[in-house]
């Protein structure tokens, strides 16, 4: 570590100032001045306290404070750290979690929306017998979903992703016969499920009629949370400018 190669030699004033700062932080007191590191440490100290009751108001205040820390960091370090610049911060950077925390909500919403579009495209690709493309889209959606921070929303997205994956598995595994019904998985060795009411054979074209309550094959139902959120359906790409 370069720390050992060129150790920082604090002067007396620095030693005294840092010691006083750490004494104040250790007492759980607020720290004077606008040193962003001191502010971050005092928040951390507060956070560690067993008596800290997570109240909504408190959480909101903390969110604001982290915004202030980011602003103070940017200001004190003399960089025009904008949202755009922060979004370029690399994940291996030590301060990545801070920038991520601050801009995470924006990123989360954008990722969720993009994931929905990818999954809709993947469904279409499955229906249209383009497994390679569907696979790529599923993979991309998976990456995007990992960036979604709202747990409820992410669960719903993962549920949809699993359904798309199941669909994809049917065209990959069953000799290219698509079964576009969510939840309906053909049992191995049997013909793909015929359309309800239709008497035709397995070579029939896929029936787009939705039968969401259709019984599955021998596979058990997916262990997915049954959250009925109205966000499964992807938004159609807008044609408006």
């Amino acid at each position: 570590m370069n720390e050992q190669l060129t150790p920082f030699e604090p002067d007396e004033a620095t030693l005294a100032r840092d010691d006083a700062l750490l004494d104040a932080l250790g007492r759980g007191g607020t720290t004077p001045g606008d040193d962003p590191l001191a502010l971050a440490l005092s928040l951390w100290r507060e956070e560690l306290s067993p008596t800290a009751v997570p109240k909504r108001a408190k959480a909101k205040r903390r969110k604001l404070t982290w915004g202030l820390i980011a602003a103070a960091l940017a200001a004190s370090l003399g960089a025009g750290a904008t949202v755009a610049a922060a979004s370029n911060a690399r994940p291996d950077s030590p301060l990545w979690p801070i920038t991520q925390r601050i801009f995470t909500e924006h990123a989360s919403i954008a990722s969720a929306d993009a994931a929905k579009v990818k999954m809709a495209d993947a469904r279409a690709a499955v229906t249209e017998q383009r497994p390679a493309e569907a696979q790529r889209l599923v993979k991309e959606a998976e990456t995007l979903i990992a960036n979604v921070t709202s747990l409820l929303e992410r669960d719903a997205l993962i549920a949809e992703l699993e359904r798309v994956k199941t669909l994809l598995a049917t065209i990959l595994g069953a000799g290219g016969v698509p079964v576009p019904q969510p939840g309906a998985t053909p049992a191995p060795g049997t013909a793909p499920q015929p359309s309800p009411g239709g008497g035709s054979g397995p070579g029939q074209a896929p029936t787009p009629s939705p039968s969401p309550s259709g019984p599955g094959g021998i596979l058990p139902p997916l262990p997915l949370p049954t959250i009925s959120l109205p966000i499964h359906l992807p938004p159609l790409p807008t044609l408006l400018p």
Binding site: E3, A74, L77, G80, R90, P94
Partner: peptide
Amino acid sequence: VRVAQSRALHRLRTIASSLVDEMA
């Protein structure tokens, strides 16, 4: 301890500034 704690704070501040350089 006092020397080490000042070095620790110095290190944390250095990390912060290098991050911002990187971002800039």
